[in-house]
């Protein structure tokens, strides 16, 4: 099926089998291998990308469902010469070991801060009607959809904390 998706600011029109997930479209069809395939079942978060500014699991979504959408993957957040502040913070705080979960962690963190800015609650939110106070418990809860098998969690929290201010 002819499907047109704006990926990292560039309109990409491709003919895809309906079975193709958004993750496989990015990696296999478009060659954007920054987004990682971990569990392929929405359990690990390694495939997290931003669709119309909102973070989702690219593995649990079909490419054909995203015709007309704007997708930002790790390659679209920053470049080696011009890192996104979240990418720089992960480097500064050594927020990874093997690095496999890192692109998903970074995309997720960027999406998470936008959700906090918008006042979206989490299960750690005490007063549902007040602005979100991004405590460490809030931050960890909001990043619980991203697993790090190397367990770099303290550094990941520190990196996101630096960007969140």
């Amino acid at each position: 099926m002819r499907t047109t998706i704006t990926v990292n600011g560039e309109a990409r029109s491709v003919d895809v089998d309906p079975r193709t997930t958004l993750l496989d479209l990015l990696r296999e069809t478009l060659g954007l291998t920054g987004t990682k395939k971990g569990c392929d079942h929405g359990q690990c978060g390694a495939c997290t990308v931003l669709v119309n500014g909102v973070r989702i699991n690219a593995c649990l979504s079909l490419a054909v469902m995203h015709d007309g959408d704007e997708v930002v993957s790790i390659e679209g957040l920053g470049t080696p010469d011009a890192l996104h502040p979240m990418q720089q913070a992960f480097l500064t705080h050594d927020a990874f070991q093997c690095g496999y979960c890192t692109p998903g962690q970074i995309c997720s963190a960027v999406g998470m801060l936008a959700e906090v800015e918008a006042g979206w609650p989490s299960q750690e939110t005490g007063d549902l009607t007040a602005p979100v106070d991004l405590t460490d418990a809030e931050l960890r809860e909001r990043m619980s959809g991203n697993l790090c098998r190397c367990s770099a969690y303290p550094q990941i929290v520190a990196a996101i904390r630096e960007v969140a201010g």
Binding site: G42, G45, T48, V54, R55, I56, N57, L60, S61, S108, G111, M112, E115, P121, S122, Q123, T125, L128, R142, S144, G145
Partner: peptide, 15 residues
């Protein structure tokens, strides 16, 4: 609101 944010992960709830 409490029940919804007790389910899944943020990425899943966003989709």
């Amino acid at each position: 609101a409490q029940a919804i944010v007790a389910g899944g992960s943020p990425q899943l709830r966003n989709k």
